[in-house]
């Protein structure tokens, strides 16, 4: 496992890829466990969950580098999941043979704007990461994992104001970019 993280830290994309199903499964289990044992936990603490998953998956790994990269892998996993979901939903919505008869009341389903947004951001995020690698990490943790500014800062080992500034910049930049397209 440690080897996997180290490989990930060396920037090997494939290693991160390998982590994804592992991380996903772990997150899901943890979430279910928390749900069962913490009746009051209305909002799950994403960081706590990811951290638990990290400890469980990499018991020997205590260095900051390993942990940081675990969070990166987790965010990558979450990103993949969300994008798969969005793509599937879009496919069904625009799906060829499915005719919408519509219910008497009104149209069905959640608005599709969020799916479009997820897919659009996914597309330009890689480009953004080449210009602003750290800010792209912030985006992943904030957007795809749902971490707070503080959690993001801690995970990436940067200060909270920096994380906040990164986030503001990235959000405005991405939005502007999407609008231009």
């Amino acid at each position: 496992m440690t080897g996997t993280f180290q490989a990930a830290s060396q920037g090997e994309k494939q290693a991160a890829e390998d982590l994804i199903p592992l991380v996903y499964g772990e997150l899901r289990k943890l979430a279910a466990w928390r749900l069962a044992h913490e009746a009051e936990a209305h909002t799950l603490q994403a960081t706590a969950l990811v951290h638990d998953a990290y400890l469980k998956l990499a018991p020997g790994e205590r260095q900051w580098e390993g942990r940081k990269h675990f969070f990166c892998a987790a965010s990558e996993a979450m990103r993949r999941i969300l994008i798969d979901r969005a793509r599937h939903r879009k496919a069904v919505r625009h799906g060829g043979d499915l005719q919408r008869t519509g219910f008497v009341e009104d149209a069905i389903d959640v608005p599709s704007a969020k799916d479009d947004e997820i897919l659009a951001i996914n597309e330009i995020l890689d480009r953004f990461a080449r210009i602003e690698p750290r800010k792209a990490e912030v985006v992943k943790l904030r957007y795809f994992v749902g971490m707070t500014i503080e959690e993001t800062a801690e995970a990436l080992g940067i200060s909270t104001p920096t994380a906040k500034r990164d986030w503001i910049f990235a959000r405005a930049w991405l939005f502007r970019e999407l609008k231009r397209q």
Partner: peptide
Amino acid sequence: MDSAADPL
């Protein structure tokens, strides 16, 4: 860019 992860 409200968190996309919440539904998940």
